[in-house]
């Protein structure tokens, strides 16, 4: 009996020592904290950029799908312009979804934004552009899922195309896509963990730095994993609340 107790005490003491070594000594918790801040910054701003790009690309793509027939009949400049922009959007989707985000990050960091010394900024831009492609298709599926009659009702009342989208279609589409959108943000949050590839000190990188400095893998990596998990749980809860509020109009 005493043996088991002693074993537990020993384990606990070891864990405590490791904890002190990893997080208290040299104020290394500060690394985790700074890394967490960077991760949150990158996720938040990349998410915002992603939604912005997503809405624009989805609008263009679904406008083209919905209006190309009538515009083609009328012909003229508007049709060709929309066709051209639609082509660009499709190219964007193909390239971004067809290449790994780590490669995109390195291309951005070492080639396109070579002159920038702000790693977090580069990460925000890269992940924002990357996320935009996925958000665009999420929004587009939401727009397509809204009954065509809603669109016709809006137009027949005298709303123009943009107003119909803005007041009638998008609010309904948003409700439909919310769970999938939440999924995308979770993926984005975790995807930012590759930022360390180009030397950005995000949460994962901070954990890894501590591992390198202390030769202790368990403590920092598990801590990092738990922090990600907690963030995702909080995010899921928040979206759940929002979803319930938006669903109030349904029985």
């Amino acid at each position: 009996m005493d043996g088991i107790q002693a074993w537990f005490v020993q384990q606990f003491t070891e864990l405590k020592d490791k904890f002190i070594l990893c997080f208290i000594d040299g104020d290394r918790w500060q690394w985790i904290f700074d890394g967490l801040l960077n991760t949150l910054k990158i996720t938040l701003f990349a998410g915002l950029i992603g939604v912005l790009i997503g809405i624009i690309v989805a609008s263009v793509r679904s406008s083209y799908d919905k209006n190309s027939e009538s515009l083609a009949l009328r012909g003229g400049f508007g049709y060709h312009l929309l066709r051209f922009i639609n082509g660009i959007c499709q190219l964007y989707l193909t390239v971004i979804r067809g290449t790994p985000v780590v490669v995109q990050l390195m291309i951005m960091y070492f080639i396109i934004l070579k002159s920038s010394t702000n790693g977090v900024f580069v990460a925000v831009i890269t992940f924002g552009i990357n996320s935009g492609a996925y958000v665009a298709e999420i929004f587009r599926s939401g727009i397509m899922a809204v009954d065509a009659g809603q669109f016709e009702a809006g137009r027949s009342l005298g709303f123009n195309y943009v107003q119909t989208m803005r007041y009638i279609i998008i609010p309904q589409a948003f409700k439909t896509v919310l769970p999938t959108l939440c999924n995308e943000f979770i993926a984005l949050l975790k995807e930012t963990s590759v930022a360390g590839y180009v030397g950005i000190s995000d949460l994962t990188k901070a954990g890894d730095l501590i591992r390198g400095r202390t030769f202790e893998a368990f403590m920092p990596l598990i801590a990092v994993a738990i922090i990600y998990l907690v963030l995702v749980v909080i995010l899921t809860r928040l979206v759940g609340v929002l979803e319930r509020r938006l669903r109030r109009s349904e029985r």
């Binding site: 009954d147 009659g149 809603q150 016709e152 009702a153 027949s156 009638i168 609010p171 309904q172 409700k175 109009s249 349904e250």
Partner: peptide, 11 residues
């Protein structure tokens, strides 16, 4: 215009 399927805005 009035439609067969009403097309009220459900939200």
């Amino acid at each position: 215009m009035v439609f067969q399927h009403f097309n009220l805005f459900p939200n």
